[in-house]
């Protein structure tokens, strides 16, 4: 077994092992989510994060060591954010046709998401750093991490809060909209894209294609608006 220990100590110090582990964990998470019929609770990211966190704990590996390998995946968040322009461009005609309702829903939904989270968090006595971490929770993850970092929050904790927000939105959207008697698929989709980013958008596509397209528009526009809105709303609570 001395050989195994030697191989392990060599591999554990190289970025390759944690990059590979990240991809394997995601493939397992995605396979399980597919097997569960893409139910909102069976989120592939959440499954992958739990598997990797358990593996780091078992092998007593620090997050810094893990990140040396995982940074190659993490880096792609920036280009992915830029690429969100593509679905927005593909839906440009739908955006033009429903321009005023989209502007109203974007402003109302985005302000409510940030303001209500910070107001409740402030009332519960969360620290300014935790409020900054919480502010971009409805924004798509790559943008949320950037906002959190520039506001002095904790990007890693923001990532977890963003995923949880998406799962909550995906679970409650259909029963909530039915209870409110909102039947316009554009309104239902757009609202879930603004409030619950990509996870909500994936849910909207399962329910109705038009709702899915509008959810994608909501997610992309909210990412841009929250980037400018969050610092300003956060200033109200400091």
């Amino acid at each position: 077994m001395r050989e195994f220990a030697e191989i392990w100590s060599y591999l554990a110090a190289s970025p390759l092992i944690w990059l590979t582990a990240t991809l394997i964990a995601y493939v397992i998470g995605d396979t399980l989510a597919q097997a569960a019929g893409r139910a909102p609770l069976a989120n592939p990211v959440l499954i992958a994060v739990i598997l990797l966190a358990a593996l780091l704990w078992l092998t007593r590996t620090s997050y810094a060591t893990y990140f040396e390998g995982a940074q190659f995946v993490h880096f792609l968040l920036g280009p992915a954010t830029v690429a969100l322009a593509i679905p927005l461009w593909q839906q440009r005609h739908a955006v033009r046709r429903a321009f005023l309702p989209i502007c109203a829903a974007l402003l109302a939904g985005s302000v409510t998401a940030v303001l209500s989270a910070l107001a409740i968090g402030h009332a519960l006595g969360l620290s300014p750093q935790l409020l900054a971490t919480l502010a971009p929770k409805s924004t798509t993850a790559p943008v949320a991490l950037g906002i959190s970092q520039s506001l002095g929050g904790s990007p890693t904790l923001t990532a977890v809060l963003v995923i949880l927000t998406g799962m909550i939105g995906a679970i409650v959207v259909t029963p909530l909209m039915n209870a409110l008697r909102i039947r316009d698929w554009r309104a239902r989709g757009f609202a879930v894209g603004v409030a619950a980013h990509g996870i909500g958008t994936a849910r909207a596509f399962q329910v109705n294609p038009q709702a899915g397209a509008f959810a994608g528009i909501g997610m992309a526009l909210n990412a841009m608006l929250t980037a400018f809105l969050a610092p300003w709303v956060l200033g109200l609570f400091q």
Binding site: C103, L106, A113, I120, L176, R188, V192, V194, A196
Partner: peptide
Amino acid sequence: VLIVSTVLALAVGAGAFVIVA
């Protein structure tokens, strides 16, 4: 925070869309 804020944002966003439409 996450549950209340997400429900409010969904309701207000969809409501604003429907009213303005």
